[in-house]
Simulated scan of single mutants.
Amino acid sequence: MAHPLDALDLALLEALRDHPRAGDLELSRLLSVARATVQSRLARLTEAGVVRGWSPQVSLEAAGFGVAAYVSLEIAQGALDSVREELLAIPGVVEAFVTTGTSDVLCRVAAASHAGLQDVLLDLNRSGSVVRSTSVMVLSTLIEPRVLPLLATTAAERSPRAPAYRSPT
């Protein structure tokens, strides 16, 4: 079930993005709301699955895995579960999505070198369930992963639920 966000939810998510190590008290100061409001909003966003974790953002490139590609896979009919298990066994597959269109699965892969990328591609093609693969090399990142601009398109339409909300000045 979707959890509609309001302006305070969005402001809280922006504060967390900008100050990821801030505690509830610091966030309440930044947003000019009561600490209990921050705590209840965070609990609600976490319970609804909007906030899914508190792990650090890791740069694969900075960690030595600067070669990346997207690989589309056409798979055998009914083989999605086995392909998932095979993809999980390949460390270079960092994300995978079930898709529509000419391919069935889109993978984001990373490696430390072109030779390492070739190894990942060969591992993908060893699957008896993969009928065909097509890869596209990533040259550079134009836009980093982001969600707040999209969330802001609907949050701006809602008024905050907490009466203690005061717009930060």
Rank of each mutant, 00 (worst) to 15 (best):
A43H: 13
S55M: 11
L27N: 01
D18Y: 09
V131S: 06
V71K: 02
P20E: 11
L87Q: 02
A76C: 03
L122P: 00
F65N: 01
A43F: 11
P149H: 10
R108D: 05
D81S: 15
A111H: 03
L122M: 04
S55W: 14
G64T: 02
S127N: 06
R44P: 01
R146W: 07
V67T: 02
V83H: 02
S129I: 03
T46W: 08
P20H: 10
L151E: 05
L121S: 01
P20Y: 10
V38I: 11
L60S: 02
V58R: 10
A63I: 05
Y70I: 02
P91S: 03
E85Q: 14
S72H: 10
L139T: 11
S129D: 15
L117A: 03
S103C: 05
V71T: 07
V120Y: 04
R108Q: 12
M1T: 13
E74W: 07
A164W: 04
Y70L: 10
V98Q: 07
V71Q: 02
A156G: 06
A34Q: 14
R108S: 11
S82I: 07
T99P: 02
A110V: 13
V131D: 03
R126E: 10
A7R: 14
P163I: 04
A36C: 11
R35S: 06
A155M: 06
R21T: 15
L88A: 09
L27T: 01
A115P: 01
F97T: 11
L8C: 06
L8F: 13
E86W: 09
S40C: 11
A63W: 08
A76P: 00
D123P: 02
M1F: 09
R17I: 09
T100N: 08
Y70P: 00
D24Q: 09
V98T: 01
L42G: 04
L25S: 13
A162S: 15
L42Q: 11
S32D: 12
A48P: 02
L80G: 03
E86C: 01
G92Y: 06
T37C: 10
R35A: 05
S135M: 11
V71R: 05
H19W: 08
V67S: 00
L30M: 14
I90Q: 00
E26L: 14
L117W: 02
A11T: 03
E74M: 14
L87Y: 03
T100R: 09
S113L: 14
L139R: 07
L25K: 10
L16K: 14
V109Q: 04
E85K: 12
L10H: 15
S129L: 02
R44N: 12
V131P: 00
V51L: 12
Q118I: 05
R132E: 15
F97I: 11
P4I: 04
R21G: 12
Q57C: 13
M1D: 10
G128A: 13
D119K: 14
A152R: 15
R35K: 14
L73W: 05
A48C: 08
A43S: 12
A15V: 10
R126H: 06
S72F: 08
E61V: 09
V58I: 12
